[in-house]
Amino acid sequence: MTLSLSIRDVSHHYGDRLVLDSVNLDVPQRSITAIIGPSGVGKTTLLRLIGGFEAPDKGRIEVEGEVVAENSRLIIPPQSRGVTIVPQDGALFSHLTVGGNVAFGLKNRRSTAARARVTEVLEIVGLAQYEKHRPSQLSGGMQQRVALARALAPHPRVVLLDEPFAALDAGLREQVRDETVRALRATNATAIWVTHDQEEALSTADQVAVMLGGRMQQIANPATLYQYPISQHVAEFVGDVFVIAGTSVGAGNHVQCALGDAVPIANACPAGPVNIVVRPEQLTIVPEGAVGSVPVQIVGSKFFGHDGVIEGTLSTGERVVIRLQADQLPQVGSRVGVTTRGMLLAYTD
């Protein structure tokens, strides 16, 4: 596996504030890596460092094995890194046509080869017929695709996408996202994709890196990340969860709690009190009093169309959330039985 990008122990300050704290990240060639985390956590700063617009205070950044920045020294300037960016707002050059934008990073822009490349990349993003248009004549989603085409055209070593769809509305967003992924795959590009939308990250990336508080918490493929989050914080950030109290029992792979006396857990935990993290789809509703079930009082219900979520209280008074098909939602105020599916997660703090 060849690495397109390697980040080693990178730390960075703004004034007194430590924005990045010993961050490590490896990005294999031809892969899509999503970096997720709440806003203000240092994701965009990391992109600025990779792009070369600043040098990291500490640590080393390598692009395809070549050291581009190390310990506050900018060794390779942005224009020579082969790292292109797709900013949040697209940032198209309004004084150039769509074709002019895409050709911007190519050598010998007037050559036949360059023109062919522009057409080729515009075809990949589905905008070949707009080459002569001005950016202002395009919709937001189209502008974003031009920005992507511009970044892909010079065969970059890495493409950076900084919340590229944040400005688009929900319906368009999904469509443009799918097209972007298709274009990235079609060009065998290596991409790093910053987002605060964990659903976007899970559904598109080969590996997902979770950043919290300036630290890289976990880097894994989407399924692993979802099933085996390394900490309660990561679990809470990736997907919906609720937390109840319990005790780790046996060899440390079962817990005792209000949902059952020996519920299996995915991650071994030392014996003693633990926080148990449950995903709403891990609970199933059965008739009250069924074997192996625990009673739940339904106190709330939300209907989303394709599915729904009900909220209930356990005998201990703890809150549970259950995701169900929309036609199975029980009445608020009724009592049901609940069983668990699969393995839960447990963490000592």
Partner: peptide, 21 residues
């Protein structure tokens, strides 16, 4: 916005080139 200049730099234009283009 300065992101325009960052884009130009990432596409291989030096700082003077970015100013001019």
């Amino acid at each position: 916005t300065q992101s325009l200049e960052h884009v130009a730099r990432s596409l291989g234009a030096g700082s003077m080139m970015t100013l001019l283009r």
